[in-house]
Simulated assay, not measured.
Amino acid sequence: MNNDWIDVRHSPEYQIETIHAHFEGHAYDAHWHDSYLVGVTQQGTQQFHCRRNKITSTPGDIFLLEPGEIHDGDAPIEGGFTYQTFYLSPEWLDREIRHLFHDTPSSYELSFAKTLNSDPRLAQAIAQTFQLLHFGEFRIVQQSALDNLLAHLAPHIHWRAEASAAHLALGCAHLAREYMHAHLNEDLSLQELAAATGTDRFTLTRAFKQAFGIAPHAYLVQLRLAEARIRLSQGEKPVQVAAELGFADQSHLGRWFRRAYRLSPAQYRQICTNLPD
């Protein structure tokens, strides 16, 4: 018997998604998001890999992930695990933090010091803010709760120097990533990617895994899925999204989308837009 469930809400005003979910056994395959994840484990034991470490989160633990950080999810103990999490857009989070704290540096980007944290006050702020956003409280109440959440999140934030364009141009791995972003809807081969970066496919694969912890083909799939989420949330139909992002058909998109997010593209589109498929 499968007791897994997931409840997703989308707030276009704040560029935030709230997710309340329960999984037993294998939860989801390795993937990444283009958002910051701020969440708390409510029940059970959640286990996942991130930053090349195996992380175990138990009730009250807070997990903080940056955009692009690869992670998976499993329930190693009978009964599974339940969690609440926010997906915060980088643009929104950076803007709000700079509004709250006037001494933030101008040429740096937000970074989380640790993936797993124990902070009861932050955990309480997550729970309170989640309820208000997920179930649609008055906007002024939501905004006050978000400010309180960010104030408690601030001690866990570091400022990391942004990589310069010259630095990003070094190394075939970074060049390959830039090439995939520019050609994400094309049926790229490893040979083509290697040729575009001036190396061979074996060297490229090794360098890419070392730099980003994931193979080039897996990164391209995740890149397409991230773009699919954006387009579906704007009301585009799954069949159109699949065709424009290089998937063979809607079913092909659906298989990858479910593996990463445990929702079908149509379900995600309906959650974000209230439009029928």
Rank of each mutant, 00 (worst) to 15 (best):
A228S: 01
A21E: 09
I140L: 15
Q124W: 05
H22D: 00
E137P: 02
I214E: 15
D7V: 05
H22W: 09
L88W: 12
H134C: 01
I70P: 09
Q15Y: 07
H252F: 04
D72W: 01
Y14P: 07
Y36T: 01
A125Y: 03
L190R: 14
E186N: 09
A21M: 13
F101K: 08
L253C: 00
F112W: 12
S233R: 12
D34F: 07
I271E: 11
A145C: 14
A75N: 04
L253N: 12
G39E: 07
D277V: 05
Q46D: 08
H134W: 00
Q43G: 08
G246C: 14
A165E: 15
N2A: 14
C172W: 14
Q142E: 11
L93E: 01
T104G: 01
S118M: 05
H174G: 09
F208R: 13
A182E: 15
F63E: 03
A145N: 08
R51C: 00
Y219V: 02
K237A: 13
L110R: 05
Y268G: 11
T41Y: 05
G44P: 08
Y87M: 06
I230G: 06
Y108D: 12
E24C: 09
T58L: 06
V239G: 11
H183P: 11
G235P: 15
R98E: 03
I6A: 02
E24N: 10
A173L: 13
L263N: 09
A182K: 14
N117Y: 09
F63T: 04
L220E: 12
R177H: 06
S264A: 11
S11G: 09
R262T: 02
S251Y: 12
A242R: 06
A242N: 10
T199P: 03
A176W: 08
Q47M: 05
H158V: 11
A195P: 05
T85I: 10
I77M: 03
G235D: 06
F138I: 10
Y179Q: 11
L146A: 10
V239F: 12
E162I: 04
I97V: 10
S164E: 15
T41F: 02
S111A: 03
L245N: 07
R259T: 04
Q131Y: 05
S106Q: 04
N185Y: 02
T205Q: 11
T199Q: 06
T203R: 15
A151W: 13
F81G: 01
A218V: 09
G68C: 03
G39P: 00
H49Y: 06
Y179S: 07
D119V: 00
E178S: 15
Q47W: 02
W92N: 08
L275D: 08
D147Y: 10
E13A: 08
Y36A: 02
A196D: 02
H26D: 09
F135G: 14
